[in-house]
């Protein structure tokens, strides 16, 4: 079965298309509506686009708004879709609520990529617009705290087109590290994951690894690649890493300390299943 043969057989197996498809005037009318909507939106987003092209994180302190202290554990799954208040498509409000411009649809979400201690919050998102164009964003929110920011909340966000030259979502998020964060960047850069295993970065040792990890469909579908490993950092600390990537999802490595993840890799997988896993409701 040479390539030409397979191509021919595939072509025949697919067959010819039956009559169908929307009439051309319908396509053009719908296309014109999309163009009109986009032009209306362009004015609202023009300033945001300038910021996004810069690609750098911005931070601001809102001193005019009320600064309620959060109570209890923050609900990091909440995401309010409404027009942004400060010309950034992705932002935290002074009260710590996450907002995304409804012109975008969330493709992938990583909660607390900067390992901020509660009640501080951070999030990283892969979103796409109506044309299927992807954008990356990251945001953080520091709760009002005595002795920090004069008791005011501090938040910031970064937003820009996805996949700039040589950049991955993970490196984009790393480079948008919040101002003043105490997180060690090394913790976010232990390994790279590209679907077929972990590549340890300089000085990192993979102690034990598992591929084809199944945490349930809430975490990944059968099309996604998932692996886990126990690794030792250059400084000697031991972490568990959980890598995931797929046709829709950008490669991402979750990092958990050994103290948090459990005594061994099996214990960590139980931990990961409880934290991120389970099956989606049909």
């Amino acid at each position: 079965m040479d390539d030409l043969d397979l191509a021919t057989r595939l072509d025949r197996s697919i067959g010819s298309a039956p009559h169908g498809g929307a009439p051309l005037p319908t396509l053009i009318a719908e296309g014109r509506r999309v163009v009109r909507r986009r032009r209306l939106r362009a004015a609202a987003l023009s300033l945001a686009a300038v910021v996004a092209l810069g690609g750098s994180a911005t931070a601001f302190v809102d001193r005019s708004a009320p600064t309620p202290a959060p109570t209890g554990r923050p609900d990091e799954r909440s995401l309010e879709l409404r027009p942004p208040a400060n010309d950034m498509p992705l932002t935290y409000t002074p009260a710590g609520d996450l907002r995304l411009d409804p012109a975008y649809e969330v493709v992938m979400r990583v909660d607390n990529p900067y390992f901020l201690p509660s009640p501080d919050r951070s999030v990283a998102l892969v979103v796409q617009n109506q044309d299927g164009e992807r954008f990356w964003g990251a945001a953080f929110w520091y709760a009002p705290q005595e002795g920090r920011n004069e008791g005011h909340p501090l938040s910031g966000s970064s937003f820009g087109p996805a996949a700039a030259e040589g950049e991955t979502f993970q490196t984009y998020v790393d480079q948008s590290l919040p101002v003043g964060t105490t997180t060690s960047p090394a913790r976010t850069r232990l390994v790279r994951f590209e679907g077929d295993g972990f590549t340890p970065l300089l000085g990192v040792t993979v102690l034990e690894g598992r591929s084809d990890v199944d945490l349930g469909t809430r975490f990944a579908t059968g099309e996604d690649d998932v692996a886990a490993a126990e690794v030792r950092s250059p400084g000697g600390d031991v972490y568990y890493v959980l890598g995931r990537q797929g046709p829709v999802l950008e490669p991402w490595v979750y990092v958990v300390t050994k103290a948090e993840g459990g005594a061994d890799l099996d214990a960590f997988l139980d931990y990961a299943r409880d934290r991120w896993g389970g099956d989606r409701a049909e």
Binding site: L27, E30, V34
Partner: peptide
């Protein structure tokens, strides 16, 4: 295909 062609028209 319809969804894709509408997006193509816009772009």
């Amino acid at each position: 295909v319809q969804t894709s062609l509408v997006k193509l028209y816009a772009a």
